[in-house]
Write a protein that binds this DNA or RNA. Structure first.
Lengths: 169, 169
DNA sequence: CGCAGATGTTGACATCGTTCACATAAGCTC
DNA sequence: GAGCTTATGTGAACGATGTCAACATCTGCG
């Protein structure tokens, strides 16, 4: 058998760490991602992560970048109306990812070229599809704000994203 | 003199800790608030905080509640149009507070009656002023989303909240 | 005056991010 | 293939954090 007991080198630790961090993110939300725990899941010593990421922040940035790529692709496939709903649905289905992607880390994207590129690609796609500049930003802000408010439980439970987004503005 | 060297009891530690946490929040943003550091600033031992707050989360909840009260009052005073702009301005001027108040903590408000009451009071005021239910939510989502996007640097720097919010929708 | 409860302190533990020195594997050059 | 270089992983350690348990001190009420 090829995958025998504990080879000294992991094979693709970088991806394994990202996967581990991802599962932690989806399971425990924001602060639940720990470098050490991710390493533990990947079956590797805590410090091994530093061979692949400069920082914990770098790990998170790489993770966010990966999700931005998926996110952009998924949105691009949808029609304009459906897009807004898909946006909100994503936020509600994957709160951890959403908050990571659009949280404080995003404002530090300059320090992480990977994240910068991925996020700007997604943003460009969003604004391009929605037509005029101001209208695009307003539409985006609307779905983004709705996502956050729903996520944080600020709105009553009976509020339906579909109704809010399909009725005239 | 009355305020001589280091009385054993602080006087109003609870308020002092909140003030300290507040300064940390405004200075260093989200994760910069530490129980120990707040205690240090208040000139008190780390564990003293536990006489006034069950948890670090409880401290943050109390802080958020305090800010919700202020926030609601400030918005209530403004006119409807100015309100949206004031909302965004607040977010940009006090990112730490904004993120604390509307962040993941808010979804755990059920565990902190103080926060629950303060946030719902603010939310009620917001929805009441904006008139119809759906329209209110949409308006709120718009300013809220705009706040987040600006805060996270997702929008170009030349985007002006005023323009976005005063032009027709 | 004296006791009870509130308020602070000390010391400790587990966890975390991070660094440094070292070990091991993979791959290239001759 | 032998030997060196580089990439990758390990171990022990440091400082910081949240939190707990046991102890000290003050304040107010009888």
């Amino acid at each position: 058998m090829s995958t025998s007991a504990k080879p000294y080198h992991h094979g693709d630790l970088r991806a394994a760490l990202l996967d581990a961090a991802d599962s932690l993110l989806d399971a425990g939300g924001d602060g639940a991602v720990s470098l050490r725990e991710a390493a533990r899941i990947a079956g590797v010593s805590p410090t091994a992560a530093y061979r692949h990421f400069a920082d914990k922040e770098a790990l998170l940035a790489a993770l966010a970048a990966r999700h931005f790529a998926q996110f952009g692709a998924a949105l691009g496939a949808a029609g304009l109306d459906a897009q807004g709903i898909a946006y909100v649905r994503f936020a509600l289905a994957r709160p951890g990812r959403f908050r990571l992607m659009f949280g404080p880390l995003l404002s530090r994207a300059k320090a992480h070229p990977e994240l910068l590129a991925a996020s700007q690609a997604a943003f460009d796609a969003l604004t391009r599809i929605a037509g005029g500049r101001e209208a695009a930003i307003r539409a985006w802000a609307l779905v983004h704000g709705l996502s956050h408010l729903l996520l944080d439980g600020a709105l009553a439970d009976d509020v339906s994203p579909e109704d809010l987004l399909t009725s005239p503005c």
